[in-house]
Design a protein around this nucleic acid. Structure first.
Lengths: 357, 357
DNA sequence: AGTCTGACCGCAAGCGCTTCCATCCGCTTC
DNA sequence: GAAGCGGATGGAAGCGCTTGCGGTCAGACT
């Protein structure tokens, strides 16, 4: 196939362009060490029944030949080389997901262990999502799966079940898998209650209309509950759904400002939306935190940059914990009981909230 | 091994909770279809020598049993199921990397194809990076690798070579692999030249000191060259290196403002740094774009939010093109010649740059 | 000295597939 | 009508590894 004589030496031309690397075989190692393949295998896998000297010889031979077991053969034969974990995620360019994945990766690789391979599955758009659950490309190739930051419906759950492996959900809804997440309803309450305590009575909601991402919109529900508890009437004009992101927030804020009686405070269901809202407010000549208060959720880096008051959630940690959970389910890692975890969120006071003017 | 009479036929038990899913075997399918395993295999792999009727029967049987080939066995036997691609990336929480990966994923899966599995390798911190190149966990498990957004030194390149597979670099330096990237020097020039054309004479540089990420700091080099070409003297006081990110930019700007003769314009080597700088300027009561101009690079979403003038680079597209390149190298995909590509960048005028006061 | 006991190791049987090669059969060819 | 012929299929040999089982040989016993 690919065959380019121009390639500089050292650039090995991969035969067929597809085999998984060159490599010495177990047999080669065994021969060099003067033992049988079985013994070599046992030595390499640290079985107790090989003499220390022999093991040493095998190890040396392996090192010399730069030997690496074929994971395919190993698995086929029943040996479990490294475990493979599927990570199913809808976005990668959003901070939340990337950050959570970083944590997940850390949690998965923590404390040595045999090693874990992470297979990435992106199910962003509807087509990709449908394709994923329909064809289940992860089938037969992973030992566990982590669903990151989105909700699966009943049909999808059923498909996923077909994988026949443990499934963990991270940064998403609590059901229907063992999960590690935060209480979005509580986070929403923390945000809105803060505004209420400051004395605001006309509080608007700028919520992401992205349906699937995080499941039932607990943050919006919290908004309603908080208002109700505060004895504030819900004004549907103050509830605006926007596409996720800063432009969504900017547009939404524009709509809000067009109201006969604009809000004195805005609860954005995500910092990125809040950022957009702030932009609109600034352009309108309003002082954020003075004329209009704005609060978000997540503690996205942009929140610090904008000095935005927000409710922080431990994103990285959710990933780490989920990673540990996977290892526990897989039998590696600490034998801690595997139970869903809800991590705490907390209010981060900055400059964008204050008493109503 | 496992032999549980209680289990419905065909549903092999998942022993140990670690085997890769349950599943019917080729043999099961063959039996059900009334043919031999060889024929079943041929039918499933679309070999031309099976009678249409037979193929049909096998396909039906397979569908009925919900059969999926064992990728391990298939590869071992020499059949190539799906190709596997390693994606080596230093960060995930930064927009650039996440966005590029989204593109990469798209490019890899474009136009059907047999399917590609993406193995993720995070080499963020030095420890992880060293571990990756030392142990080469991707060995024997991938058919190609993509290095995203960072430079590998000679030793690392040599190690990578051991993978024995095609390697592509995306969003990083042009060497030493076939790559798809942008001309960072040119981008830098576009930014600084813009400031020069506006009439600025005291232009500061706020550069990320993150050493490894993008290789030789072409953007900074461009700054120097642009000044030289404009006949402006380089004032080392105006060159500030900061940790990547908004806080870095904020601090750096603070230092700049402390100068006896502060700059009238700032070139930040990344939008996120520019964002931090803007914050500092605002807090200092300076009008960004009026009193001090700021320009970044990347066209990160935050640039739009902040109305930041910047030099845009096609991040998603770099990923897509790299994905196609990998497919081409692997022999799938369009047989386009595989050559490194440098994608264009362009100035995006917004409100943070203007003539000096 | 003869036998027993382990510790070590090799044999061989697979794991679930793919593929070479031989086989079988219904037809075309002379 | 016999000899070919090619299309369709089954048999069997692996791919590279793990592992149950049994064999060896050096002591440890009595």
């Amino acid at each position: 196939m690919v065959h380019d004589p121009e390639v500089p030496a050292g650039h090995r031309v991969v035969d067929e362009g597809r085999r998984t690397g060159p490599g010495a075989s177990l047999e080669d190692v065994a021969r060099l060490a003067g033992v049988s393949a079985s013994t070599a295998s046992r030595a390499l896998n640290n079985h107790p029944q090989v003499a220390a000297a022999t093991r040493e010889r095998v190890l040396t031979a392996a090192a010399g030949l730069d030997y690496v077991v074929s994971p395919d053969a190993s698995r086929l034969a029943g040996g479990i080389s490294r475990t493979r974990v599927a990570v199913v995620v809808p976005h990668l360019s959003r901070w939340f997901f990337g950050r959570l994945l970083e944590g997940l990766e850390a949690g998965l690789h923590e404390a040595g262990g045999a090693g874990v391979d992470v297979l990435l599955f992106l199910v962003g758009d509807v087509a990709g999502r449908r394709a994923f659950f329909e064809h289940l490309p992860a089938r037969r190739r992973v030992d566990a799966a982590v669903v990151v930051g989105f909700e699966v419906d009943e049909a999808e759950r059923a498909r996923l079940e077909l994988l026949g492996v443990h499934i963990v959900s991270a940064g998403g809804p609590r059901e229907p898998f063992p999960s590690v997440t935060v209480d979005d309803h509580r986070a929403g309450r923390q945000a809105v209650d803060h505004l209420v305590h400051l004395g605001h009575r006309r509080i608007a909601l700028l919520a992401s209309e992205d349906p699937a991402d995080r499941g039932p919109d607990l943050r919006s529900a919290a908004y309603r509950d908080a208002l109700a508890d505060a004895g504030l009437e819900l004004d549907e004009d103050l509830v605006v759904r926007v596409p996720f992101g800063a432009s969504g927030g900017a547009d939404g804020m524009g709509r809000l400002l067009g109201l006969r009686r604009p809000p004195t405070a805005v609860f954005a269901s995500a910092d990125e939306i809040a950022a957009g809202a702030m932009r609109t407010l600034r352009r309108a000549g309003l002082r954020v935190g003075g004329d209009v208060s704005v609060i978000g959720i997540d503690d996205h880096p942009i929140a610090e940059t904008l000095d935005l008051t927000t409710v922080a959630q431990p994103v990285h940690e959710q990933g780490v914990v989920a990673g540990r959970m996977v290892r526990a389910l897989l039998g590696s890692g600490p034998p801690e009981p595997v139970a869903s975890r809800v991590l705490p969120t907390h209010l981060v006071l900055r400059s964008t909230t204050g008493p109503p003017p």
